[in-house]
Design a protein around this nucleic acid. Structure first.
Lengths: 359, 359
DNA sequence: TTGTATGCGTTATCAG
DNA sequence: CTGATAACGCATACAA
């Protein structure tokens, strides 16, 4: 037990004081110490070294609050994630996104302050963002016309959205959801499926809307009629995917484009529970390429988006915005790709073709 | 399109200025306005009303940074979550914990600053915690002897751990992991299983250690020999659980106590892939009672811990600590319970008994 | 009940 | 290259 050392129980180890103290201890002025810390100004190598030594010895750390008040910059980026459904956060999409944000922010010496935006306490966030503490905000999965976005815009707070927002004043990073969905659905169509359904995301999310549009476009390309019975909306959770598939099954689809891998996992479970074969009876294509997708049975064909990169891009865009608030809004569209695994029946289909050819 | 109103594009809607301005506008002094805002001091109802009106009209919001510098309190609580494995955050355990923390913090007018503690940038956190910005820290899943904890202790930063820490200086909230694990394992034993294995969590985590201990104690109670072959350590992920079960299968267990539901999900998949029946061939008991457990096939028998409550308790403990830094460390142990579903074979066993009786 | 004065720990401007 | 000195926006003891 007691793997934690017992040292420094008292005041002796207190994290040291103020700029003033360091100044006194090293026989220079506050200003000089400040310059050393922000190592931009010109300080003689000798004094710099001496001051640094004292700082190290005392374990001094600048008071971020004071620094922020004086400089107007906090070096803290806010991240807002909607907590609509109870466990959105457990979607691997968010952990990846956060990871990407955290790493990139760190490389720019920025702290990250994460807010789980329970609708009920969004006030808290704009309280923070409005005055101090945070220099800017990254908003994920904002909804169309979300009052929170309006607030951000009107208050002139620097922010960028992860996901398209239809307003010329807002900057965002996103992937081509329409095109990706079109490609994914088209893939099923090309493999010969004709009753291709879709489990869409919640329809207030732009990503869902776009993916649904892509689905329609693919149908159009193949001259197929859009059938309302073959469309259900989920909520990006596994349970939602499963429920969606259950409803879909009444209409006998032979292929389903699912708007997220997590929902696809649920759909897959429902299919198995119904005794249906994947991809033989029903082919599946997902969206996101979360780690789980590779391990499903069968492995899931899905649209891969580089979620970490999305997060990193968001950070960079936000920093640009913070440095130059007058800059006009910018958009970054990152590439995505279809990863073909077994759930779509691509291999199967080839076999079928082979069989067809020989008979 | 354009669901976002176009109003207030310019400076007209800027979030208003300073205490000073409000004071001038309402014809009183800064102090009075300050008192109104912190509505604790005695201010005449008349002036209070007038000032409040101006504040509303101007959309004034106090600058948290300045307030913090002046008062020494930030009203921001830090939450540190280790980012050891890539997607820990996607464990429903954490979303629940965070949710519990967020809600409780909000009810106390506290902001929450979440830090994903990539080991590589922990420095960032203690930078923040050391001086300003946050008043205290909630640490989750700290490891024994973690240098980060040492730092926190030595720097005299108010913090509480979610999960036992063996140091009399640290406060924590936890459940009775040993007892719960003993009960869970004992349940399998009572049902007649005799080769009961365990998939433990990572052995640097106290929760894992405790649960493993509980497992041993249950074995002892039943006079069974502890068998090293029947113990594997996972990493709390689904993949880890699956891999663990694979190794375990060589030793033909008839029951497994899995230290987390997420790992249990993986274990279950592996069992199915091996063509084994649950619970007939192998009975399973998990830990956590995440939402998924109810939907597994068969539904998972598991130890339910009230994770949100754990988070809320952590917040309250931390606030106490912040208000009275001299208070001695305190511990809170929350109750947990075994939720019996189908994966342990409790029902099955009853049937067996019935059959045994009639033959 | 209200106002005045001072300080919180930095940064930044301006002299030297 | 270095040192005073004035902000930054608010809280708070003290005086009125």
């Amino acid at each position: 037990m007691g793997a934690i050392p017992q040292g420094g129980s008292g005041e002796g180890s207190e994290v040291a004081g103020t700029l003033e103290e360091i100044a006194r201890l090293s026989g220079v002025s506050r200003s000089t110490v400040s310059r050393v810390i922000n190592n931009n100004a010109r300080v003689s190598p000798t004094t710099r070294e001496r001051v640094l030594e004292i700082i190290r010895r005392e374990g001094y750390r600048p008071n971020l609050t004071a620094r922020q008040l004086a400089s107007g910059r906090a070096n803290v980026l806010g991240v807002v994630i909607p907590l609509g459904s109870p466990d959105v956060l457990s979607d691997p999409y968010f952990s990846k996104l956060l990871h990407g944000i955290a790493v990139e922010a760190d490389s720019h010496d920025q702290h990250v302050m994460l807010s789980l935006a329970e609708p009920s306490f969004r006030h808290r966030i704009d309280e923070v963002a409005g005055q101090g503490i945070i220099d800017g905000v990254i908003v994920s999965a904002a909804q169309e016309g979300d009052p929170f976005l309006v607030r951000l815009i009107e208050a002139g707070i620097a922010f960028i959205s992860v996901g398209r927002v239809d307003d010329e004043r807002v900057s965002y990073v996103d992937i081509d959801n329409v095109g990706s969905a079109r490609q994914a659905t088209g893939h099923l169509l090309r493999l010969g499926r004709r009753r291709v359904a879709t489990i869409a995301g919640p329809l207030y999310a732009t990503a869902s809307i776009d993916r649904l549009r892509g689905y329609r476009e693919a149908l159009d390309q193949y001259g197929l009629q859009f059938d309302n019975d073959l469309v259900v909306a989920g909520d990006f959770t596994e349970a939602g995917g499963r429920a969606g598939m259950r409803r879909l099954l009444e209409h006998r689809p032979d292929g389903v484009f699912v708007a997220s891998d997590r929902m696809a996992a649920g759909a897959l479970n429902e299919l198995r529970a119904s005794g249906l074969q994947i991809p033989d009876d029903v082919a599946l294509v997902g969206f996101d390429d979360i780690p789980l997708s590779r391990e499903m049975e069968p492995p899931l064909t899905t649209v891969r988006q580089q979620i970490e990169t999305l997060g990193a891009a968001a950070v960079n865009l936000l920093l640009d915005l913070i440095h130059d608030p007058t800059a006009s809004a910018s958009r970054v569209i990152l590439p995505s790709e279809l990863v073909v695994r077994a759930s779509c029946g691509a291999h199967l289909n080839q076999e079928r073709k082979a069989i067809d050819a020989t008979t």
